[in-house]
Design a protein around this nucleic acid. Sequence first.
DNA 1: ATCCATAATTATGAATACAGTATTATAGGG
DNA 2: CCCTATAATACTGTATTCATAATTATGGAT
Lengths: 227, 227
Amino acid sequence: MDARRPPANPALSLAAPALYEQVAERLRNRIYAHELAPGSWVDEQAIAAEYGISRTPLREALKVLAAEGLVTLRPRRGCYVTELSEQDLDEIFPVMALLEGRCAYEAARKASDADRKRLADIHGALERHAAANDPDRFFEANQQFHEVLQELAGNRWLKELIQETRKFLKLTRRGSLKLTGRLRQSLAEHQTIMAAIERKNADLAGRTMHDHILSGRAALAKLYTVR
Amino acid sequence: MDARRPPANPALSLAAPALYEQVAERLRNRIYAHELAPGSWVDEQAIAAEYGISRTPLREALKVLAAEGLVTLRPRRGCYVTELSEQDLDEIFPVMALLEGRCAYEAARKASDADRKRLADIHGALERHAAANDPDRFFEANQQFHEVLQELAGNRWLKELIQETRKFLKLTRRGSLKLTGRLRQSLAEHQTIMAAIERKNADLAGRTMHDHILSGRAALAKLYTVR
DNA sequence: ATCCATAATTATGAATACAGTATTATAGGG
DNA sequence: CCCTATAATACTGTATTCATAATTATGGAT
């Protein structure tokens, strides 16, 4: 493998995303929306036709999704949407709690006054949406809160592992925030986390975040048993 | 997306791996061996010709490697082997320490007497190879030890995150075990871990494993500065 | 001689075509 | 009537072909 090309300076590419990437993104969303249901077969020809593309970029997109774990490729059998078992969830959430807990710990350690202000603002939005009983916006603000923490933690790899793990959680049913009491409980947990961060108590921030995630697992479990 | 196919019972596939998978595996090994050097351009045509295949499965393999992070695909520019900076390593190792630490913790909690025996056996091999000053076999046994811990921890997702993170570490230079004293130090750390597991002290096992990984980072850093 | 504009080349991205295998349908026998 | 064996079909996996963008080479101007 000789360098027949120049070093090709590593300037960041801001080129238009490749077709396979766009397709992968669209498929991700359809999977998250359960429009492509867990366990179901993915019909290459049908989707290619629907998107007005050939199977080539579609298949490349499926390879990406397979590497992410959202679909499973069975040789000569085709592509199937990944299905998570209850046991999977019981295993994923603790890992998520570990990662997000560390994230909160690091964020609490490293946050500047300005950072804390930013977090407090988002937390304020969280409180408003909880008061208004608006699960969708609460969800939005919640996600924002977690993303800011990931930024503040300042570890690109930690962040990526979290986001990758989150992809799996997106495979599950949504709506646990709509359970009676869950919104309020989630808010209370966030208040504890926020308080720990403002007091610059990293250990406490980490621990409460850890428990917050596990609490999310419990809520999801209820969602499955209740209805 | 109607089910034009039957449920297709989810029997595990033991079919021959697809060509793109084999190619991905070969490329991974070449990347790990630095035969494809970090930062270098990957010549699709040359490799396709070398392997006697068309570009199609090769490109699919590259998509997989890109999703794993081993290569970077720049639209219309081609494929480049990922290059890790010192800062990347400073960020990856703590995450690895977190994951492996938890792994050791869980393994120590859950291990049966038979499991501890198995670990002790591998640890024994570790001691022999250290005494014989055989870094390569020490490396092998070391990897085995960690893999067994991952099994014992009993969390598929934790294991997968670790292995995925390990892929990145494989991008770095090997041979830190050949540094004078490192083999002995690594063994000493393993002895502490093993002792904690035998005493069923999960907290200690987790903490010592955590520090063991960070110690690996320090050794790697030396490798870069010394020579 | 250096720099810029333009032409030629080369590589990537995507579509189409083909081969081989798994699945489904059909026919025959128990 | 059901089960088995065989043929037909459909889909996946791979190769080939084509279009387009990026890179390199060439030639001319300053």
